[in-house]
Design a protein around this nucleic acid. Sequence first.
DNA 1: TTACAGTCTGGTATCGGTAACATGTCAATA
DNA 2: TATTGACATGTTACCGATACCAGACTGTAA
Lengths: 329, 329
Amino acid sequence: MTKIDEIAKMCNVSKTTVSRVLNHHPYVSEEKRNQVLKVIKELDYTPSSLARQLRANKSQTMAISVPAIDHPFFSQLIKGVSSKALEKDYKVLIFQTFYNVATEMEMLDLLKNKEVDGIILGALENEWSSIKPFLKYGPILLCNEYHDSAAVPIIGYDEFDAAYKAVSHLIERGHKKIGFCCDTPSSQAQQLRKEGFIKALLENDLQCEEDWMFDHAFSIQDGFRVFTEMSSLADKPTAMFTGNDQVAAGIIKKAMVAGCRVPDDLAVIGYDNQFICQVTTPTITTIDTPIAELGQQAAAKLIKNLGKNAEMKREVVRLPTKLIVREST
Amino acid sequence: MTKIDEIAKMCNVSKTTVSRVLNHHPYVSEEKRNQVLKVIKELDYTPSSLARQLRANKSQTMAISVPAIDHPFFSQLIKGVSSKALEKDYKVLIFQTFYNVATEMEMLDLLKNKEVDGIILGALENEWSSIKPFLKYGPILLCNEYHDSAAVPIIGYDEFDAAYKAVSHLIERGHKKIGFCCDTPSSQAQQLRKEGFIKALLENDLQCEEDWMFDHAFSIQDGFRVFTEMSSLADKPTAMFTGNDQVAAGIIKKAMVAGCRVPDDLAVIGYDNQFICQVTTPTITTIDTPIAELGQQAAAKLIKNLGKNAEMKREVVRLPTKLIVREST
DNA sequence: TTACAGTCTGGTATCGGTAACATGTCAATA
DNA sequence: TATTGACATGTTACCGATACCAGACTGTAA
């Protein structure tokens, strides 16, 4: 690698002068500036960003954590974050926690020693009390996750409202026995959904039946599993809030194969309005969520706060969602 | 941030001794070692990896480029790479090129100044001649891409064989008018598929019809588009090699809605054996590709070569694929 | 003529670690 | 007793950049 000293030597100037040229400082004569630029080009010199990072104590990099990248929701979220970051000239380090507490801590260490300037948590594996101490090292932001006492910006959907809308829709369609799927039950964001679900039920004098609640439902496979479990119940729900289009697709497919008609025998509602909703038979009624927008807003907010070294304050943004009615309800 | 000097001062030793403890060097007395470890724990000290990286001139980080992360194929590929990298204690910087030549060059610059130690190219936007000069800065590896003259390891599927198998299957089912979809037509990996496609046709005295070739087909939406374009043809194909499960799903859905029966009027074969194949109606015949395995092997090969500073040699690995017959053919 | 501000340039310390080399101790060996 | 080598520790340079301070030169106002 060519380094700044070599350029300096070739131009008979000090490396300070070369550095000034690189950083567009005034007070460099036109003549030397041109000469330095010429030599830089000739030698194809790129300054070491590692050295710069060390010196400046910042990295122009942010990290985002997700449980796993291969779920459409998270890959789209990341895409949103990345596109905004790219626009603002930040790099993005993507971290998959694989639902692992220790991996998440490793990522937080990146913040501690300034390998990244800030972090977006798209997953929350540890207790908040474990994460809190890292706030002094740089900004952290919750995206698509929720915590009631975290003193950081939180940006997500109005999960409560979304679930309420979805379940109300099922009730309007005449259903009285409604099931509920969620992914990680300990997640507070999932709790909010559950509260919305329950509110809609209670408003219509319906009960929340423990047997109709399913956990860790995230993928198409999980949808298969949920349908199988559900089928074995003596008293089966006639409608399902799945919390996830993949799960909805899985349930619907298994149902159709089993001769259970959707939506007549079983209505199913998804979440996120992924394209998969449009290719199943029947197509899937769902909640439209602006995922890319979510990612972009999160990244924008983080970047805005990277300059200041004031700690970020709690602030909850809930993006609106929309019910999209299709054939599965 | 606590730094190594502070630890040294607190322990009344030199920072070299602290460094020795950190790096598990021998020749540190048990007594001092324990004392240092104790103080490190007390002050919650983490060494700056930025400083380490600068000093060692390596970063324990690899980069992988993909066109966009939100396509299931690429997110699964990345997952494979990441899991292997995590296991070997490497970080992964994920780079989305967004099909952009300049963004790809930016990533290559990371290699030049050792922000990353090596690169896996899962996308290939620039001409190889633009990429080749970067080989002197560190190992580069092609994954799921192909280039006939690149002197680097290439790891992908046997695309030729896969397409050949798929199309032969369609022909066995009695089809004589077979269409072909690909994503970026300039990609040499796509070319290999096309050659396999053509070989199967020629062996059965069939022609490759220009009107039945579709470009830039990647997503469900693209599948919708392809079906629409196809429908407007006077002479329509009766079978489609889509090169991609999403495209297959899109085509199938539009076909069914339009009253075109699958597979009777139109047979469709996918590629990658994504879960989506199992939730459409009809389910999708496809080529099973071990995507995670591909990513893991790529990462493993790269890591193996990061230690040595010898340039990597050309070496082509083609993982086998398998035909999975379902209802769409 | 002197003083001072503005322009241009270089020397040196610094970011936070690690490596090479030097030094010193102590016990085993010749 | 002198020599050797294993062990233990510290001093100093270095990775590749930038920031601060100081010095030199120029032009204009006092």
